[in-house]
Every structure is written in C-alpha cells, then in structure tokens.
C-alpha cells in the first residue's frame, strides 16, 4: 500500500468527497435517514456534537432518546447539565431512559454549567453527557471539545441557532427545526462533504397530525371525549 493510501485509511483522516470513518464506534441514532449521513453511521463518541435549536418542544430531546436508551442498556450513566426545564419523570421512564442511571446537574450559572460538563467528560464516568448552554462561546466549545476528545462518551451540547454562523470546535453540528409537526435536521458541519438538503425525521410524537386538523376542527367541539366507551 502506498504511503498516501495508508494515510487515507486512517480513521482520523478523511477525504473531502466522502464521509469520514469515526475513530470510535458510533452509537446509532435510531433514525436510518440520519445515521446514513453521519460519519461512522451514528452519533460520534469522544467528540462534541452541537445541536442548534431555539426553545423547547420540537422533538430535540426525542432525537437523542434512542441513543441514550442504548447507553443505558449497556449499564452506562447519562448526565444532564443545566436542562432548560424541570424533568417530568414519567415521560423519561416511558422513553426507556432508566432513571436509576440518570443524573441531573442544575448549576446556578452558565460558568458552573460549563465547568460541570467539562468535568463530567474528563472524568469519563458518564457514557453520555447532554448540556444546555445556549450562549456558550467559541472558547467554551473548544474546552468542551478537548474534554470530549479525551473521553469515549457521547457529548451533546444544545446551543441557540443564532450561533449557527459562528465558528465552532464541534466536529458535528446539526441545526434543528420543526416542520409540519416533525423534526427536520440540517447538517451544517460534518467530516465529509456538505449536505445541502434537510432530513425530516419521523420522531415519536405524542399525537398524530392529520391534514384535516385545522384550527376550526377542534376536539373542543365535543364534550370532554377522551376514552369514551365505543358503543353503537
């Protein structure tokens, strides 16, 4: 094998026209359409993944639940740092995220949150670290990427979409948006050729959205009708 060919098969070297191999085995996201566009075929371990999203409720967390449940299956811990709202335990349990392997850090300041997330990654104790630092700056991201690179954990960071145009040390950056009740993902940075199209994902959503669900057709029209006995 020529020297160049040898270099090109190294996992940390990728050619611009094809997806890189991930240095560590990835963790499947559970969405084939997404996995096929991610280097290594899933969420990277030992690298920071940036998720750009504003506010809550478009399915940004459901995007991660498959991978987090996978981590759990293997006995691994997940740590949430500075989540934007209090956790509603029944939902987490129902999503297959065993709460006995979930820890939450709710720091008083963004600085503490950054510190906690960095410490968690450096410790290599949790197998997944998810942080909400909507306005973390480029320096903070560099620190987190360095910490993530020294671990083999999944590392997700939620940031505001306003920072999409800024430089970022994260090797993988996804911008999330809601569309027709579904989550669309735009990969704005990855180790591989750029991807112009957004990917629409069929996430588990709490209710079905039908085209006839328009504002004037409201379930309010009837009586409180949930679980009415079906009789003729």
């Amino acid at each position: 094998m020529s020297a160049l060919a040898e270099i090109l098969v190294r996992p940390d070297v990728w050619r611009g026209d094809r997806l890189a191999q991930a240095p560590l085995p990835t963790v499947a996201s559970g969405f084939a359409a997404l996995d096929s566009e991610l280097p290594g075929g899933g969420w990277p371990r030992g690298a920071l993944t940036e998720l750009l999203v504003d506010g809550a409720g478009i399915g940004e967390l459901s995007l991660l639940t498959f991978a987090l449940a996978k981590i759990r299956e293997n006995g691994g811990w997940s740590l949430l740092v500075a989540p934007p709202h209090p956790l509603h335990a029944p939902a987490w349990a129902a999503a297959g995220l065993d709460l006995a392997r979930l820890a939450v850090v709710s720091p008083a300041s963004g600085r503490d949150a950054l510190w906690a997330m960095e410490q968690a990654l450096v410790s290599r104790a949790p197998r997944a670290v998810v942080g909400w630092l909507p306005y973390a700056d480029a320096r903070a991201l560099r620190r987190l990427q360095v910490a993530a690179a020294g671990s083999d954990a999944l590392a997700f960071l939620f940031r505001s979409t306003r920072l999409a145009v800024d430089a970022s040390a994260a090797p993988l950056r996804l911008q999330l948006a809601g569309e027709e009740g579904q989550l669309t993902v735009r990969i704005i940075k990855r180790r591989g050729p750029p991807l112009a199209a957004s990917i629409r994902l069929a996430l588990p959503r709490p209710a079905r959205l039908r085209s006839r669900d328009h504002a004037h057709e409201s379930p309010l029209a009837g009586r409180p009708a949930v679980r009415q006995p079906a009789h003729a």
Partner: peptide
C-alpha cells in the same frame, strides 16, 4: 442511582 419504573399516557419530558 435510585431505581424506578412507571408507565403512563404521553407525557412531556419537560414540565
């Protein structure tokens, strides 16, 4: 690290 389990109708992650 406390262990738990409980099934419910659709419930939101954040409250």
């Amino acid at each position: 690290g406390a262990s738990t389990a409980s099934p419910t109708p659709p419930r939101p992650f954040w409250l």
